[in-house]
């Protein structure tokens, strides 16, 4: 027992080491904050993209439907690692797309765009399942009183679709939270999986505790999101 507490004590020393400037060498909370920021920005992007794409998919214009379907299929089918690697190696390195000069900002923004594009396709599918909960008669009634397609989508179909899609949107968001760790392959070196890899390299004797730390960290973030989405999906469900 004493040996175990001793071991824990040494792990505590390991994770609280500071460099000569007094900064934490392994900034675990900071790393989680990077992933949370990645989640918030790319989640917003994915939700906006998903909404636009699902509106295109239900539109009466065939070419818009085709573009939306193509986007959904392409980004849903490419592995996230490939998308993020391409953002770094193709968009940044080859095409020279930058966002303001600092590399750390470029990599963060490119990771957000990659995560947003990828999860946008899942958001579009989540919302499409929401659209399927809205009976056809709702759109017919909207058209029958003279609303245009855009008006009936915005005022009648999509509000009900969102309310019917809370649970799948929540699932996509949870997947996104965990998938932000893939940003490490896009050179975002301050996020959790990069931090974890560094810790394992220099503290292999603590490997189990290191995994446990990050696993519990994600569980602590995901549980409230899951609980909230379950609660909201019940509370917001449209009574028919």
């Amino acid at each position: 027992m004493e040996a175990f507490f001793d071991y824990l004590g040494r792990y505590w020393e390991f994770i609280t080491q500071r460099d000569s400037d007094g900064d934490l060498i392994y900034n675990i909370l900071g790393a989680f904050w990077v992933n949370i920021q990645l989640t918030l920005w790319s989640g917003l992007l994915a939700l906006v993209l998903g909404t636009v794409v699902v509106a295109m998919r239900i539109s009466p214009i065939a070419s818009l439907r085709a573009v939306a379907t193509a986007y959904t299929n392409i980004f849903r089918d490419i592995p996230l690692t490939v998308v993020i690697l391409m953002m770094w190696l193709v968009v940044w390195t080859q095409l020279g797309v930058t966002f303001g000069g600092k590399m750390i900002t470029d990599f963060f923004v490119l990771a957000v765009i990659g995560l947003g594009l990828y999860h946008g396709s899942f958001m579009a599918e989540a919302l499409r399942s929401g659209v399927n909960t809205v009976p056809l008669g709702q759109a017919e009634a909207a058209r029958a009183i003279g609303l245009t397609f855009m008006q009936s989508a915005r005022m009648v179909v999509l509000p009900q679709a969102f309310r019917g899609a809370v649970a799948p949107i929540g699932n996509t968001l949870i997947a996104l939270i965990k998938n932000t760790t893939v940003a490490s392959v896009g050179a975002v070196s301050t996020e959790t999986s990069s931090t974890m890899a560094g810790m394992i390299e220099f503290g292999p004797q603590f490997i189990f505790l290191i995994f446990l730390t990050f696993a519990l960290g994600y569980v602590a973030i995901v549980i409230p999101v899951g609980t909230l989405s379950t609660y909201l999906s019940r509370k917001l469900a449209v009574k028919r």
Binding site: P135, G137, Q138, A141, A144, V156, Q160, K239
Partner: peptide, 8 residues
């Protein structure tokens, strides 16, 4: 309509 179709 037969099924009313009020905006739910």
């Amino acid at each position: 309509f037969q099924s009313f179709n009020l905006f739910a």
